[in-house]
Amino acid sequence: MSTMSNSLAETHVESLATAGLSQGDVSDFFALLKPRVMFLVVFTALVGMVVSPSNVHPIVAFVSLLMIAVGGGASGCLNMWWDADIDAIMTRTAKRPIPAGKIQPGEALAFGVTLSVGSVIILGLVSNWLAAGLLAFTIFFYVVVYSMWLKRTTQQNIVIGGAAGALPPIVAQAAVTGHVALDSIVLFAIIFMWTPPHFWALALVKSGDYQRAGIPMMPNVAGPDATRFQILAYTILLAPLGMAPVALGFGGLAYAIISLVGGFGMLALALQVYRLRQGEPAMRVAQQLFGFSILYLFLLFATLLVEHGFGFFRPVFG
């Protein structure tokens, strides 16, 4: 009995000792920031900055952009901390640092909170407190509203939660101008409307993963056919919205062409997803829509960046 309890005690001490030691490498901590999402945040925020007429110092703009990126990374880190249990179940996320056992949950929490608070305070000091408040709201929305509340409770999780991913252009514009204008609100709306067809196309392919993890994604709850209809509906709204910058005057000739062709491409693929419902072709076209949606959003924002950042803007009207 005594040998057994000694053995249990040793195991307990060993596990505590191991739990107290960080096993993470620098690259593991970097992976916690979701680098690919962070790139999207930087990219869309940069476009939010360049479309806004301002005379802010380039260094101030650069540091503001850096803090928006760090804030975005921090929210990704806190999302991974909260979702470690379901990440371990899904094949797409099982190798993330926490489920892989490289980083302790407590470390990720401390890392995420430190970066969140640091990025908001520095952005406030460097640019203004409107931008800092918007960044804090973005982090709160992604971590608390999306990750902790919506993700596991409603099939509309990524529709509402998508607002967090759409906010960076608004934060960036506020950082360089001190206010929020229609330009960045339109960029917000484009990303917001793009999110459902983008994620639901992935969810159609990976529905088994989400099912196992118990996440109420649209295909698992409403069924694949209802999801296909929703994808088509959102794409019908997205395609003309993608051209709104032209109507508002901050999308030039190149943007008009790209958004028109890209919008038709999105519509054609969404229609294919709606029509093809069985077997391998249905999965393939959903995968194609997922891939093309990334290209579509990238091209829209890259064109605005080239037009405004490199002096290639040619107005469509007048």
């Binding site: 505590l16 000792a17 030691l21 960080s22 096993q23 993470g24 490498d25």
Partner: peptide, 25 residues
Amino acid sequence: MADQKSSRSLTPEEQKRRRTRSLAL
């Protein structure tokens, strides 16, 4: 308990990781 935790010596791999983390910080 705390003494037992601190008495555990780090493996060379753990030492290397701790060093890179400290340098990054």
